[in-house]
Simulated assay, not measured.
Amino acid sequence: MDTKALLIEEAKNLFQQKGYKGVGLNEILKECEITKGALYHHFPNGKEELLISCLQSMQEEITTDIDMIFQQHSSTLTATKTLVDKLTAELDSGNKIAGYTFSSIVSEISSLSEPVRNACTALYEEIQKIYFKKLLNDGYPEEEAASLSLFMTVSIEGAMTLCLAKDSTLPLSNINAILPRLLKD
């Protein structure tokens, strides 16, 4: 793994574990076993630029995974249930689904800068697009598909945050129980 990729991977893990403000540059440097000069070579604007690269990396991982699930299923309902089941299984196995949610990072840093806020927004918009396309394929009118895709994004992200806060998968399970009332199969 090259130095830039190592920095992104290690910083992403640290940010997800401790939050943006809870991680100092020295901790990232120590984890990567590199110098400050190497970090600034790849990220001249420092920690914030590194964070944006981490958010972009998370966006690619998350949306690729969600898109694959949605392509494998014939309806939005079955695809969403599969996604929620996957997230629930990851939580049940002791994982913290950090790759799927960065609400804590977003809430902590959304006031930092416009570029950080834009990187956060891009992920949620990309997830919404995946849901929106599937809903259109299911025959939903465009306006309803737009509303439902926003609702799904907010509900699933919020449920994951509650799961982490409560140390329980019940919020995600509730989504799967309610989905058949909202979506056609």
Results as ranks from 00 to 15, higher is better:
L182K: 14
E108D: 02
E33G: 01
V116R: 01
L91P: 04
P141F: 15
T78M: 07
K184V: 09
I69Y: 01
T153P: 00
Q128E: 08
L150I: 14
I34N: 00
G22Y: 06
C32M: 01
A5I: 10
E10S: 08
F70D: 03
Q56H: 11
D2T: 13
Y100E: 05
I130N: 00
A159H: 06
L162D: 13
K81W: 04
S93G: 08
C32P: 00
A38E: 07
F15N: 00
L39V: 14
E10H: 09
Y131D: 01
T169Q: 07
M58D: 11
L164V: 13
T3P: 02
D85H: 12
I69F: 02
L136R: 10
Y100R: 10
Q128F: 04
N45T: 11
S111M: 10
S53K: 12
P180M: 07
L55T: 14
E157P: 01
I109E: 04
A119H: 05
K81Y: 02
L183G: 03
F151D: 14
A165W: 11
N45R: 15
I69L: 00
V106H: 04
E114D: 11
E157I: 09
S93L: 04
M58S: 10
K96G: 02
P141D: 15
Q17A: 10
S149F: 10
K134A: 00
E143C: 04
L29S: 09
V116H: 02
N176V: 13
Y124K: 09
I62H: 11
L135F: 08
Q72M: 12
A98S: 12
L39A: 07
L164F: 11
F151G: 14
A89S: 08
A11Y: 00
L148E: 03
T64F: 13
S168A: 09
I62T: 14
L87N: 05
N45G: 11
M160C: 06
I105V: 05
L39D: 04
P180C: 03
T78D: 05
K81H: 08
L14I: 14
A79F: 04
Q128P: 01
E61Y: 05
E144T: 13
I69P: 00
I52R: 08
D185I: 09
L112N: 10
E143D: 06
K4L: 01
L150M: 15
G24S: 10
Q72E: 14
G22M: 02
L150F: 14
G158P: 00
E144K: 15
E48L: 00
G139N: 03
A89D: 04
H42E: 06
S74N: 13
